[in-house]
Design a protein around this nucleic acid. Structure first.
Lengths: 252, 252
DNA sequence: AAAAAACGTTTCATTATGTGAAACGGCGTT
DNA sequence: AACGCCGTTTCACATAATGAAACGTTTTTT
């Protein structure tokens, strides 16, 4: 039972289907080929394009070909990906935090560190102090290792060979080849663990957030004290987190 | 005598007027206030927003407020400002080059250098060798000095105090305070000159390209050998260049 | 050099679609 | 309990989007 069939504005849907046809692989379109691609009538396509041109959303160059225009660039730059991720994730991560009763964080990669852009506290007394806007090292956190594991091999190599990895606890992985195999393992199993590698007594699970193109753009983590964070619960935690993440991914 | 009144798609125009209401100063809108702002009926505005939400172009958060969504971010990032500037400028700079019979270049600031992203050759035998994609120093070129002159005072200070300015010809300005007053002079007069400061025998004029917000996003230069580049022609050159630039600015 | 094909664009009768006033139901305040 | 504000839905109506065909150029083929 889907929601009611809304009265959506067909012209707007068409306009954005047209815009979506402009990709890095195909930046220029003629009217007829674009009509064939979208399935719209040639006249309709022409009028959609004319309107978009008048708004500077698309630009028509000298060969009469159409391409995306500067106004779209401007509008797109008014959207902060962090902000929209934050807004979208609010409710889902709060629900996760309620369900598993641990602190939940949303993190992204930024300048060779993990930047946390959203947080949902658990109601438990013992809380994690990591706050929104704070940074942590990649190699010693569940989210950091996760995001690097899902980066390109080139990025991984760059990271591994251009940084030093100091020991933060007795469990910290400080060896380059161990880190590389940790990345491989994480990518294979689809989640990441921090077993007191950043701070003694602190355990953490992280899973990826994928965008529509299948790229990992963020990670969600649940952290808690090792005293109550039992390894046999990991599977259950991941399942709960996965449900929340799929709610986020719908809007990306 | 404008061009024929085209049959533009009204819904699309409305949709983008709605999107344009979302600015850095006002990132969230309710239906009613947005209807008041745009002048559209409350129902119409609601349906426009519903359609845009279904496309993930806008996002509706928990308070039922609307804000710009991730799909708009994605589309905006498919537009390269350089590419659209290049396409838009092609015809205008060619016309300028024909008119004043000198090589015309379009340059932007990139990583403390001038990056040239478009060029129109003159038909004169003696041509300028600077090519598209090449970089030149800020302090010794007309376009570089121009773009820095129209940057914030903070950027100017950063540039002046974190770089060294080697002498390229006997005319190069290598002194920090002279450069600062050169920037001030350029911003005041609205154009920039390079009097054999980069290469002996080479003279250059540059004027700014403004976007709709009044920011300088690029510079256009005309360069020629000092033998035929007479100072009494500067005013005429600038007027011709200004005409071409205004054609570019229409599309920004 | 002529003919044909392909392009973006315009026309116009037809009909699908977006429209606005009013009503609705939920929520917070008085 | 009454009010005011919100986003949302309804429905008769009028406007605005539609597609087939024709147009005028330009490019390709013959």
């Amino acid at each position: 039972m889907e929601k009611d069939v809304k009265n959506l504005n067909q012209s707007i849907i068409k306009a954005f289907k047209v815009l979506d046809a402009f990709t890095p692989d195909k930046k220029e379109w003629g009217v007829r080929e674009l009509a064939a691609k979208t399935g719209y009538n040639k006249s309709t396509t022409y009028r959609l394009l004319s309107t978009l041109v008048s708004l500077h959303i698309v630009y028509q160059n000298e060969n009469e070909k159409y391409s995306l225009g500067s106004k779209l660039f401007e509008l797109g730059n008014r959207v902060s990906l962090y902000e929209s991720l934050t807004t979208i994730s609010n409710q889902p991560i709060r629900n996760i935090a309620l369900d598993i009763e641990e602190t939940v964080l949303l993190g992204v990669l930024k300048e060779n560190q993990v930047l946390y852009i959203n947080k949902a506290d658990s109601l438990n007394g013992l809380k994690i102090s990591t706050s929104i806007g704070s940074h942590q090292p990649i190699y010693a956190t569940a989210t950091g290792k996760l995001l690097m594991a899902f980066s390109s091999l080139e990025k991984q190599k760059n990271y591994l060979y251009q940084n030093t990895f100091g020991s933060l606890t007795k469990n910290t992985i400080t060896n380059i080849s161990s880190l590389q195999s940790e990345f491989n393992k994480i990518k294979k199993q689809g989640y990441s663990l921090d077993l007191e590698e950043f701070e003694l007594g602190l355990i953490c699970i992280a899973i990826p957030v994928f965008n529509k193109k299948g790229e990992v753009i963020a990670g969600i983590s649940a952290s808690g004290p090792s005293s109550r964070f039992k390894m046999e619960k990991v599977e259950k935690y991941i399942s709960i987190m996965q449900n929340g993440v799929s709610l986020i991914e719908r809007f990306l």
